[in-house]
């Protein structure tokens, strides 16, 4: 952080040459650009969902669809409860990821290992929750091309609702899955002293960017499907 403040305190010609105009490492810039393209992919999915929803007269009530909880008695009505658990799991795992990045900046190997393990546990917990929810919805008769839930106003629904739900949460879940795999690789590299030998933990920062992005996308997915 200190080099940023010194660099921006003078009126510098950033593009005049001889300086790094972004002052971040190449891999990190590329991670940002990848995340930007990924944001457009998710954005396209969510906007098409919104467009279809706006072009339809009725839509299922999310509080009727997502009302169950694991180990809860049959027919329990607990809307928003399970998804709030999932949201908090992802927020907490994002926090432990920040702590891992911070420990990496201090060359604190034990801190990185500890926080990476928590982050991985959080990711796996989220995936398990999602697997349970998908399984539950499947047994209620919901799947791509099949929608057992009627619209909130009591009229017949189309399969748009389930198609978008499974496609978008599935795409997000796949991102979580690859994030967990990346985090496990980072953990192994930390444990085998790869980053100690390199003298920096920049890879943890890049994995961290990806992981926070996954959390960021969930903020939007969660709001669009469960709250609105």
């Amino acid at each position: 952080m200190s080099n940023v403040t010194t660099a921006s305190s003078t009126e510098a010609k950033w593009w005049g040459g001889g300086k790094s105009p972004f002052n971040v490492e190449y891999g990190k810039v590329m991670m940002w650009y990848f995340l930007m393209s990924d944001a457009f992919t998710f954005g396209a999915f969510l906007i098409s969902y919104g467009t279809v929803r706006f072009s339809t007269n009725g839509w299922p009530d999310p509080n009727e669809v997502f009302r169950s909880f694991p180990f809860a008695p049959e027919g329990v009505h607990a809307p928003l409860v399970f998804v709030s658990v999932m949201t908090f799991i992802l927020i907490v795992s994002s926090v432990t990821m920040v702590l891992a990045v911070h420990a990496g900046k201090n060359m604190d190997k034990n801190g990185v290992v500890r926080n990476m393990i928590w982050t991985i546990i959080g990711g796996i917990a989220f995936l398990s929750c999602q697997a349970w929810e998908w399984n539950h919805l499947f047994h209620e008769g919901a799947w791509w091309g099949q929608n057992p839930f009627i619209n909130a106003d009591g009229t017949a629904s189309s399969t748009n609702f389930t198609n978008f739900f499974f496609t978008i949460t599935g795409f997000h879940g796949f991102h979580v899955f690859s994030g967990v795999v990346i985090n496990i690789i980072m953990l192994i590299m930390t444990l085998t002293d790869k980053f100690e030998q390199r003298g920096h933990y920049l890879m943890i920062e890049k994995a961290g960017l990806y992981w926070h992005f996954v959390d960021l996308v969930w903020v939007f997915v969660f709001t669009c499907f469960y709250l609105l």
Partner: peptide, 23 residues
Amino acid sequence: LMMAKAFYIVAYFMHLKHELKNL
């Protein structure tokens, strides 16, 4: 509120607020 959450994640967790203006 969703946009506010997105801002805090990107600005602080992803550290973008502390990067150079160019980036």
